[in-house]
Write a protein that binds this DNA or RNA. Structure first.
Lengths: 145, 145
DNA sequence: CTGCCTGCAAAACTTTTGCAATGCG
DNA sequence: CGCATTGCAAAAGTTTTGCAGGCAG
């Protein structure tokens, strides 16, 4: 999915939910489309203000939530108190290795994991929505120190 | 691991870290040993106060953190704002299916998952500490509604 | 004795909410 | 035009911290 498709997806989602397509919402999506890696709400709010985008904290939280609902971004918690987000379009589903020492977050992809998840859901009559595997440990750099 | 072993583990851990073995810390571990299922810090603090155990909020948070460090309890975040804990001894490692509708949390065990994790860590030169796979979706009961 | 721990309350932080004003549909 | 949305600030909820005793080692 490219950036213009992402915008179309968001607009369709808003309309289907009878929510309004406001400039604030589109501006925030635009900003996320140019981002890379993980970010948190407060952090994102600061960037947004610095860039002169008009959107209050409430709107930022609201919009992030809507983007999660329509699958354009993913929301994680990596053990700290803050929710983290990342772009979920234009790249494959992946999971995270989190270094407990330096906080670095590595990503990995495992097709076998998808199979396991499908199997587990079937066994429990569970309808899959999304998932998150987080492996905590020590990264190779920190092991050498 | 049974309950008396858990206590020994905790005491050894405290001593190895040059931390004190205080009645508050032991009382809190005792209380956790009799618990089942998931709990959060505030919730646990209430129970502790109701039972007449003397321990402040600060001590509860501190002790939960120590118990996580020595592996006697596990800490999770299931998408809400609160950290959840559960006993990690006397039962096998497991992961969670979380119903987005009713909030129910089902547990499952997958030996294949352990293999994948080992493999991924090896590939990235990562030293494994612990992990958490959370699958979000709709449970069978909620699908029937 | 020493200094780690505790209790209490206040502070810090993240996220949500109430209300009046605004503007999308 | 009606009502969802916004901005602002205040509230709510969770976790951390500062400080003055208190007690484990």
């Amino acid at each position: 999915m490219d950036n213009s498709t992402a915008k179309e997806t968001f607009i369709s989602f808003l309309q289907s939910q009878k929510l309004r397509v406001t400039p604030e919402r589109l501006d925030l999506l635009d900003e996320i489309m140019t981002s890379n890696g993980h970010f948190d709400a407060e952090n994102f709010y600061s960037v947004v203000r610095e860039k002169g985008i008009k959107a209050s904290r409430a709107t930022v939280y609201n919009t992030l939530d809507l983007l999660v609902q329509c699958g354009l971004i993913s929301k994680y918690r990596f053990g700290d108190t803050t929710s983290r987000y990342e772009k979920a379009f234009g790249r494959p589903r992946h999971d995270h290795l989190i270094c407990l020492n330096c906080g670095e977050i590595l990503e990995f992809v495992s097709p076998e994991l998808d199979n396991i998840q499908t199997k587990v859901c079937k066994q429990h009559g569970f309808r899959f929505a999304n998932s998150s595997l987080q492996i905590f440990g020590t990264c190779s750099k920190c092991q050498k120190k």
